[in-house]
């Protein structure tokens, strides 16, 4: 049998190395997230606290255990979920610029969530389910737009998504105008994407994203084939309808779940997959785990910036991600048009 060329043989080792490097980055970001905050602290104070050398009742220990650690975990899970969600969206719509926030799917979940908030539901399962329903509806609308003919014009799809987003925006404003003053501030912060509304006892619920993560990682090879289009994927043995539906439900579910706690945080699902695709290529068996690690790292750092940006309070983290993401999106669009 012929001897394979070097290009063919690089894969498995590379996957391990890249994931290891990204894990180190994530650990570094988490360490920064634990060390820094509005009440000060330094890089050296973490070890004594985490290893139990400092009494758990001390002020520093309380801040780290009860405030910063849950916050870092939340940022990591939300970032990983949004980034992975963006990656899957880009495959399903076969458009490297697709992103749930941009295309109005987040807007749909916002309508669901805000309606549930106004009715007075609890975050889980009430708001989560309502958000899931809202995003599912907008997603189906988007897929109908994308399904049309074999060659979907990518710009018209984006335009359709932007219009769905605008419509959702109008509905959100309508809902806000109906709500009482006391609720408005809460909803506004939620719309801007804010990790500070989270309560520690909600932490275990975040585990709900795990099944979706596993499913997407398992379906990494079919994801590669789906990028070639439904017919080519089918011709290479993918049960296209089944796989697509599984991915849709899993992705929408995990994104809706985190959105209930984090609010609308945009562009994470665009920035992270895009940068990693440039660095690592398109193979999802590498790209999917890398996106999870990269998304977690990115949002921990953005959240750190949001927490420490000014002393009198916090910025909603969604503002930071949009300030970074929107210009990048414009740049990518410009480059794609050239």
């Amino acid at each position: 049998m012929a001897k394979p060329t070097a290009e063919l043989l690089t894969q498995p080792g590379r996957r391990l190395r890249v994931c290891l490097a990204l894990t180190v980055l994530l650990a570094f970001a988490a360490w920064m997230g634990l060390s820094l905050g509005s009440t000060g602290g330094g890089f050296g104070e973490i070890w004594p606290v985490l290893s139990g050398q400092v009494s758990a009742d001390s002020v520093m220990a309380t801040i780290i255990w009860k405030i910063r650690l849950p916050r870092v975990v939340l940022a990591a899970v939300v970032g990983a979920t949004l980034a992975l969600g963006g990656l899957v969206f880009q495959v399903l719509l076969r458009n490297p610029l697709a992103e749930p926030y941009m295309l109005g799917v987040s807007g749909g979940s916002a309508i669901g969530a805000i309606s549930a908030m106004l009715v007075g539901f609890s975050p889980f399962p009430g708001i989560a389910l309502s958000a899931f329903g809202g995003s599912m509806l907008t997603l189906l609308l988007l897929l109908m737009l994308a399904a049309g003919r074999t060659t979907v014009n990518r710009d018209s799809l984006l335009l359709g998504g932007v219009m769905i987003n605008a419509f959702c925006g109008a509905l959100i404003m309508f809902l806000i105008s109906l709500s009482r003053d006391s609720e408005v501030r809460h909803i506004l912060f939620w719309l801007m994407g804010d990790l500070s509304l989270f309560r520690n006892d909600q932490l275990p619920l975040l585990l709900g994203v795990a099944p979706s993560f596993v499913l997407i990682l398992v379906l990494a090879r079919p994801l590669n084939l789906l990028l070639l289009g439904r017919e080519e994927a089918a011709a290479m043995g993918v049960s296209v309808t089944l796989v697509t539906n599984l991915l849709l439900v899993a992705t929408t579910f995990m994104v809706s779940l985190v959105v209930c706690y984090s609010g609308l945080i945009g562009f994470v699902g665009l920035v992270i997959p895009h940068i990693l695709r440039l660095l690592l290529g398109v193979d999802h068996r590498l790209l999917a785990p890398a996106t999870i690690l990269g998304g977690a790292t990115y949002l921990i750092l953005c959240d750190l910036l949001a927490r420490t940006f000014h002393l009198s309070g916090e910025l909603p983290v969604g503002i930071i991600t949009a300030l970074i993401g929107a210009p990048l999106f414009i740049f990518l669009l410009w480059r794609a048009r050239r």
Binding site: N95, P96, L227
Partner: peptide, 8 residues
């Protein structure tokens, strides 16, 4: 639209 390599 998504650039796989020839080997991939």
């Amino acid at each position: 639209d998504f650039p796989f390599t020839v080997a991939e």
